[in-house]
Simulated scan of single mutants.
Amino acid sequence: MYQGHFGLTEAPFGITPDTSYFFTSAHSQQALNTLLVAVRSGEGFIKITGEVGTGKTLLCRKFMATLGEDFVTAYIPNPYLEPRTLMLALADELELILPRDVDQHQLLKSITFRLMELAAQGKQVILLLDEAQAIPLESLEALRLLTNLETEKRKLLQIVLFGQPELNKHLEMESIRQLAQRITFHYHMGALSRDDLEYYLAHRLRVAGFTGARLFSRAAVSRLYAASGGIPRLVNILAHKALLLAYGEGRHQVERRHVGLAVKDTAASQGWWWPWLAGAAAVIGVASVTWAFVK
């Protein structure tokens, strides 16, 4: 839409987790390093938490892309599943072909055999569960039992939980205290700092093909930080709308007022309660900025 106007090859502020846009801020790099060190230790559970929109799914995909050939990953994006269905999802990720009426015993036996087979090939299997705060408690317990599978030297399966802070509350429950004790590595992802935001914008614009001078004025960046709190998803939503507004006016730089208008159009950025509404902002349309094209 506005790519040609600003000299871009693609839209730079999408909200889909594209690993080519992964930004190595202090938080994201430390989280990635934690994951890489943890999986090479070969033990237990790993937990990554962060507020809505801080980039957990993007980190997960970047992590998978970073792993070498010695690793096999099983990714479940929506783990709101009862124990048997969760086990079936894992079996599917491990490319197991099972009878439709497979019983629980045979299911677990088949998964165990496949894990042992991969271990014999020198492969390390990692199960990654996104939105882990949604996992039912009984399914968390089933996952704990899976980590009992091991050789004399290491676990047959490592599990990485990516979730919102509510995940911590679940893990504090007495009924799954054994699982909480097995979390050997954890990291909490925070928001971008004001300085990080400058680099974040420049990074995404550069990946999208921008070669010009500053596209967001310093005042625009300050307004963007104040409205988003440094939450990457909100930054992307507001930056995209601000670019639309600047384009509609034929401007080649985003100013503070463009960001201000984008903020008014985005409920999640208005007020101290933005962290809890950040997810909803992703579905807000840009209909209210179309006046810029017809003015």
Rank of each mutant, 00 (worst) to 15 (best):
A120D: 15
L32F: 05
G285H: 11
G163F: 02
A132E: 05
T151K: 05
A142Q: 14
L145M: 13
A74C: 11
L32S: 09
L86T: 06
L161H: 03
R154I: 02
R100Q: 14
H5Q: 04
V221H: 01
Q30H: 10
L86W: 03
Q178V: 04
N168C: 06
L94S: 09
I237C: 01
A246Q: 11
G212E: 01
T290D: 13
V39N: 02
P17G: 08
Y247M: 06
T211S: 09
T49P: 04
I176S: 07
S20Q: 12
T66E: 12
I176P: 05
K109S: 13
E10C: 07
R114I: 03
M173A: 09
L161W: 03
R218K: 12
Y75F: 15
R194A: 15
T184F: 08
G229D: 12
L59F: 09
R204Y: 00
H5K: 03
T147W: 04
R223S: 14
W291V: 13
L179P: 01
W272C: 00
Q178A: 07
T54W: 04
T66P: 04
E117A: 09
G230L: 03
A239M: 01
G42A: 03
I284C: 00
L179A: 06
Y21V: 09
L156N: 03
Q29W: 00
L59R: 02
Y21K: 11
S41H: 12
P136T: 10
G68F: 04
E117M: 08
L36S: 02
L115A: 09
T24C: 08
T266N: 08
Y2M: 04
M116G: 13
K56Y: 02
V254D: 08
A246M: 12
E141W: 03
A220F: 06
Q30A: 14
G260Y: 05
K56E: 07
G4E: 14
E131G: 10
R100V: 14
L201T: 06
Q104G: 04
A119E: 12
Q30G: 10
A281W: 09
P232H: 08
A239T: 01
M173P: 00
V294K: 14
F13K: 02
E174L: 09
I15P: 00
R182H: 11
G279H: 11
L224I: 08
R257G: 03
A227K: 08
L8Y: 03
V102F: 06
V286G: 02
L215F: 01
A239N: 00
A278R: 06
P79G: 07
F293A: 11
A281N: 13
I97E: 15
W291S: 10
V289H: 10
T73R: 00
I97G: 09
Q181C: 07
G4Y: 11
S193H: 08
P12Y: 02
K47W: 00
T112L: 13
A120S: 14
L115E: 07
L201C: 05
D92E: 15
I135N: 04
C60K: 06
G250S: 09
G7L: 01
L36W: 01
W273T: 12
F162L: 15
P165V: 05
L81M: 15
P83T: 08
T9S: 10
T147G: 09
A268D: 09
A119H: 07
K153E: 13
A282H: 05
A281C: 13
R182W: 08
D18E: 14
P17Q: 12
G7A: 01
A267W: 03
D265L: 12
T24A: 13
L128S: 08
L108H: 07
